[in-house]
Design a protein around this nucleic acid. Structure first.
Lengths: 234, 234
DNA sequence: TGGTGTTGCATGTGATCACATTACCGCCTA
DNA sequence: TAGGCGGTAATGTGATCACATGCAACACCA
């Protein structure tokens, strides 16, 4: 079976193997399927994807450029384990950028887009009694990016995606310790502010939401670093 | 002559050919050596660098991921020509991020760092009478990033670099039309605010500086788009 | 002469090959 | 028993080869 004869079937979703690998690796990182500190090999990923190492190398190169993968040339590649200090910087950048996107979204969001946001929120609320935090994550993801896309700032959305990508491997640790109730009220406040096109209020709620989640991760990292320092130099 | 025997000489500045190509392409873009809309070929760049296409392909892939190069898979690659709308988005993001970096820098900048900033400013002021705008650009570049580095937020600095990279090819058009006097006073105000560790004031001056420069580029792009629309549909 | 089909070259993409470097593990020696 | 040493397998990197596609000039026909 020649590739040409059935090109009509494959051309729809397939551009290049490199982009395909990039998208799949990105999604794997985003959904927490790799652990922080986990080592990756080009040949291993190539075997997993059923392609040669060439497209994989270019895909991980792009991820490394975004900071989603850490690589020492000629030596190793791994999923970054962020320190408390790095997480603090990430928090400040995310607060600034996601605040900006939310502020702009408040003025531009359409009823259809707002309905989409509310639908995602309903999914999250429905999942809360069961306590299935892992199932919640993709919905939280969709909700946030539905808001950000409403800002009509595609380059900004792409930058925020890169920031989420860096935080994602550690974000699985938010559960189940992180109290969801407080976050739920902040999310509801954001949605109400968006509904009445109150840009300043929407921005403040989103900033608090993002800031709180990252502060929790920072606390975890600080405790871990303190414990490690204690065992190394007692 | 084996590569091994003289590794001591090359290892100093050479990590991988890919990183070398990436750094050189980045610098070429940053200093405006490529024009907006200019087409690039992997084989052409490979010949220019004296290497095989492989490392070039990975370098331009990284640049494409950052938006510094525009590429249609399997077809072409070129230096992006930003529309007025894209420039407006770029302005808003840059104002937010460079404002944040400047605000943080105001609280943390050391006397040595401040002296470095003032040295760059002196170079720019000295170049103004001659009107040598092209020679000014690298100093403006150094001055801004000296400030941003003082924020102690390396990931933020890297993101700002990516934004400058996207704007750089069009930034050569700032000269000689863009009035430098106003910008000079804003820069002086920023430096004074940094010197007295006035974060809010430093942020405002920097935001105005960045915003003004981008507004000028936006005006150019709008005029160009209007002219093009007039010739296409008269 | 204008439009259309064709052919050839240039280009991006991916697989394979070759090489230097690194990491891992067992062994030896002090 | 602990630390240094060497060998081997695995890995990242880069060059080369092979292939399909896109583009442009050219020839051909109405």
């Amino acid at each position: 079976m020649s590739r040409r004869a059935y090109a009509v079937f494959t051309a729809v979703e397939h551009t290049t193997l490199r982009d395909h690998a990039y998208a799949r690796l990105r999604e794997a990182l985003m959904t927490g399927r790799f652990d922080p500190g986990e080592h990756l090999t080009i040949r291993g990923l190539a075997a997993a994807f059923g392609v040669s190492p060439t497209p994989i190398r270019e895909a991980v190169g792009r991820l490394a450029a975004e900071g989603a993968i850490e690589a020492e040339p000629n030596k190793w590649m791994r999923v970054p384990r962020l320190s408390a200090e790095e997480l603090r910087e990430l928090r400040d950048i995310r607060v600034a950028l996601e605040g900006l996107a939310t502020e702009r979204a408040a003025g531009l969001i359409t009823p259809a887009e707002l309905a989409e946001v509310k639908r995602y929120d309903a999914e999250i609320v429905a999942l809360r009694p069961a306590g299935d935090w892992k199932a919640m994550m993709p919905w939280i993801n969709r909700l946030h990016f539905a808001i950000y896309r409403a800002s009509r700032m595609p380059a900004l959305v792409r930058m925020i995606e890169g920031l989420w990508l860096r935080a994602a491997p550690q974000a699985t640790r938010l559960f189940p310790g992180y109290t969801q109730t407080e976050r739920g009220t902040l999310r509801a406040a954001t949605i109400r502010a968006l509904a009445r096109h109150d840009a300043a209020s929407a921005r403040r709620s989103m900033e608090a939401d993002v800031g709180n989640a990252l502060d929790y991760l920072i606390g975890l990292a600080e405790a871990e670093e303190a414990a490690q320092a204690a065992t190394q130099a007692p």
